[in-house]
């Protein structure tokens, strides 16, 4: 007997991308549509939540239709509807959640709520099968976390940022350097051209801690720039970027490697928008090439927010029996560990 193929529809609207995707068996992208709002938010130098919500409601059915057209499928071919329920901007999340509920209800399909970070991690499953235990380094505008997975759908946070997320530090430094929004890619680019001439601090914290802290580094960079300005000293932007990035990467890579060895993991996967950073990729590859641990970094289009990753994580939750009810709500501060327990024990 053939095992029937599974098709899960994913919907993601947690920040400034309206995204819908259809994924087969949790691993194969059938269609993956992302409508980005970056151009609209650029003029404000950051995401304006109310404007993000307005764009989502304008884009949602268009993106939905495109995802089905590209897949040459109809809703009848879909086994379940998965949606990001949190964390994220509440007004933005609500568009996806209510769209998913209406779609599932109108067609009598099961509904699955997905944690956004679980989605980022499962983006890797679209490239390569997981082997456990594995360690995930999640780095984005809102997150810097080390997550241990002993099995599918199980997430244990072993380290997290105590203040700013890495991506947040990138954006703030970029603003100080008067780079356009979003600043991360520009710093990465400048860093490739500059040299590490300034020894910025590294926040190692306690010896046995896998936590991170980037606010001290951010302040050090801003102070350095202000002091130079007062003394009419010219600092090369490229060198500032290279020195700042070297500090961030040094801490991220060192702690990831240390945790990977301590927990004896088979794979290390990198997830989130900052995973697109070239400097970070290069350094991780250099560090892990000689180790028996397999390093997985998804291609760029799977690092940034998309719905294929939500469908991939949703497939796991679906097969573990998780179902959301019609009262599913957006949860802007949904905890990953609570989500992990729920997937395992509820229903």
């Amino acid at each position: 007997m053939n095992i029937k193929d599974q098709y899960i529809l994913g919907i993601e609207t947690s920040c400034d991308e309206t995204a819908v995707a259809i994924v087969k068996n949790g691993t194969e992208i059938i269609s993956n549509v992302v409508a980005s709002q970056i151009e609209s938010h650029k003029r404000f130098g950051g995401v304006v939540p109310e404007i993000a919500s307005r764009h989502h409601v304008e884009q949602m059915t268009i993106v939905l239709e495109e995802a089905f057209t590209k897949a040459k499928m109809t809703i009848d071919d879909i086994d379940a509807v998965a949606v990001t329920e949190g964390p994220g901007l509440v007004g933005a999340l609500l568009i996806g959640v209510n769209t998913a509920k209406a779609l599932a209800f109108a067609n009598s399909k099961p509904l699955i709520g997905v944690h956004h970070i679980a989605g980022h991690i499962y983006a890797n499953q679209l490239e390569k099968e997981f082997s456990f235990p594995l360690l995930a380094l999640v780095v984005s505008g809102g997150h810097t976390e080390l997550i241990l997975m002993k099995d599918h759908g199980s997430f244990e946070i072993i380290g997290e940022t105590r203040d700013d997320a890495a991506g947040e530090a990138y954006d703030k430094v970029a603003r100080t350097l008067q780079l356009p929004y979003p600043g991360g890619p520009f710093i990465d680019k400048l860093a490739q051209e500059g040299k590490e001439t300034i020894d910025f601090p590294r926040a190692w914290l306690e010896q046995d801690s896998y936590d991170f802290s980037f606010s001290g580094l951010k302040s050090a960079v801003i102070n350095k720039l202000h002091n130079a300005e007062q003394r009419n000293e010219v600092l090369e932007k490229e060198d500032i970027a290279a020195s700042f990035q070297a500090s961030v990467i040094d801490v991220l890579v060192t702690k990831t490697l240390k945790a990977a060895i301590a927990y004896d993991v088979k794979q290390v996967i990198v997830a989130g928008g900052v995973a697109a950073n070239k400097g970070l990729r290069k350094e991780l590859e250099a560090k892990f090439v000689a180790s028996p641990i397999e390093l997985l970094i998804p291609p760029l289009y799977l690092c940034t927010d998309n719905a294929a990753m939500i469908a991939a994580a949703g497939t796991v939750a679906y097969n573990q029996g998780h179902r959301a009810a019609w009262d599913l709500n957006a949860n802007p501060s949904l905890s990953l560990e609570k989500y992990s327990l729920r997937t395992k024990y509820e229903n």
């Binding site: 307005r54 409601v57 769209t99 209406a102 109108a106």
Partner: peptide, 19 residues
């Protein structure tokens, strides 16, 4: 309410679209 209006509209638009 901006949020309230959007809840109704995303539900209604999606239902009309899929049906």
């Amino acid at each position: 309410s901006y949020t309230g209006v959007r809840i109704g509209l995303s539900t209604a638009k999606t239902m009309a679209w899929t049906l």
